[in-house]
């Protein structure tokens, strides 16, 4: 079963994500801040990361840069899931190489479709 790491501080969105992703046949793991997310990244070795940008204990953009700068994690596909509307932030994020940028509120089916597409399923 493909492993999906969620780095998202909002409890409600985490619950929705866990239920949606599990139902679609993937194995989700939730983390609630930037520090915890980066720790789980090394121990879990996920097949895909869903990353929020406004996080406690660090900005998601820094997490993204760290993922992309480490040879162990640089090829992990990343979906950004954020309520940030700023196009400048989006451009900066996309320049780091992400597989998708999805704005909140998100459509569950669209998200699962994107995950399946990225993971080749």
């Amino acid at each position: 079963m493909k492993k999906i790491l969620i780095i998202e501080d909002d409890e409600l969105i985490n619950k929705v994500l866990i239920e949606t992703i599990s139902k679609a046949g993937f194995s989700p793991t939730k983390t609630v801040d930037a520090f915890q997310g980066q720790q789980a990244l090394m121990s879990l070795k996920p097949d895909l990361v869903i990353l929020d940008l406004m996080l406690p204990a660090g900005h998601g953009l820094d997490v993204l840069r760290n993922i992309r700068s480490s040879f162990q994690t640089q090829n992990i596909p990343i979906i950004i899931l954020t309520a940030i509307q700023d196009e400048g932030v989006r451009a900066e994020v996309e320049s780091q190489g992400v597989q998708a940028y999805i704005k909140k509120p998100f459509d569950k089916e669209q998200l699962i479709g994107k995950i399946k597409q990225i993971l080749g399923q």
Binding site: D9, L12, I13, M54, T82, P105, F106
Partner: peptide, 15 residues
Amino acid sequence: GQRLAHTVKGSAEMM
């Protein structure tokens, strides 16, 4: 403060 307001905004939009 920005982050807290942003987080509530995100889930409020979703709901």
